[in-house]
Simulated assay, not measured.
Amino acid sequence: MTLDPAELSAHTARDVLRTVCTEARIVSETIETALLLVSELVTNAVVHGGGRPALDIDVRPDLMHVSVSDNAPGTPHVAHEPVTSEHGRGLFLVETLASRWGVQPSDGNNKTVWFELDRVPRTPPGLRPV
């Protein structure tokens, strides 16, 4: 899905991801983490990436893979900003909360930043996790 190059793109991405996660019956804790992380990646793509960011969501039985592509060259880096900082903590959150993440450069002028979250199986009603 290609998003508009505007700050509301993060809102749109969260709405789309929430719908996909709900339909895939992903547990709420995983959904909340995914929503935070996609918001950070899309915001970075809009602010630093130029052009229209592209969102890709792949839900598998054991994991969720989310990627955001933009038109900026280079590899973003994790900044270790103070907790009180309003900016610069997006990739730190991705690094901290994602099961895995990375950056895939493409033709020299584009890149894709992705994260994966391991899926926690839902406990059927009436059963308790062991």
Rank of each mutant, 00 (worst) to 15 (best):
T2P: 00
T2I: 13
D4N: 10
P5S: 13
T12D: 11
R14W: 02
A24G: 05
A24W: 04
I26E: 03
V27T: 14
S28K: 06
S28L: 14
T30L: 05
T33P: 01
V38P: 00
S39I: 03
E40Y: 08
L41S: 01
V42E: 00
V42Y: 01
T43L: 02
N44D: 05
N44A: 07
A45L: 01
A45F: 01
A45E: 00
V47H: 08
H48K: 03
R52L: 02
L55V: 06
V59P: 03
V59D: 10
V59A: 14
P61G: 05
M64V: 15
M64A: 15
M64T: 13
H65K: 09
V66K: 00
V66W: 02
S67A: 15
V68F: 07
V68M: 04
V68P: 08
N71I: 00
P76G: 06
H77M: 14
H77W: 09
V78W: 09
E81G: 04
E81T: 10
P82Q: 14
T84P: 00
E86V: 12
E86L: 14
G88K: 09
R89A: 11
R89K: 14
L91C: 05
L91S: 05
L91I: 06
L93D: 09
V94D: 04
E95S: 15
T96P: 00
T96F: 11
L97V: 06
L97H: 12
G102D: 07
G102I: 04
V103K: 06
Q104H: 10
P105F: 03
P105R: 12
P105H: 10
D107S: 11
N110E: 13
N110T: 15
N110R: 15
K111H: 10
T112V: 14
T112W: 00
V113L: 05
F115M: 02
F115H: 01
F115T: 04
E116T: 12
L117H: 02
P121M: 04
P121Q: 09
R122T: 12
T123S: 13
P124L: 09
P124H: 02
P125S: 13
G126Q: 00
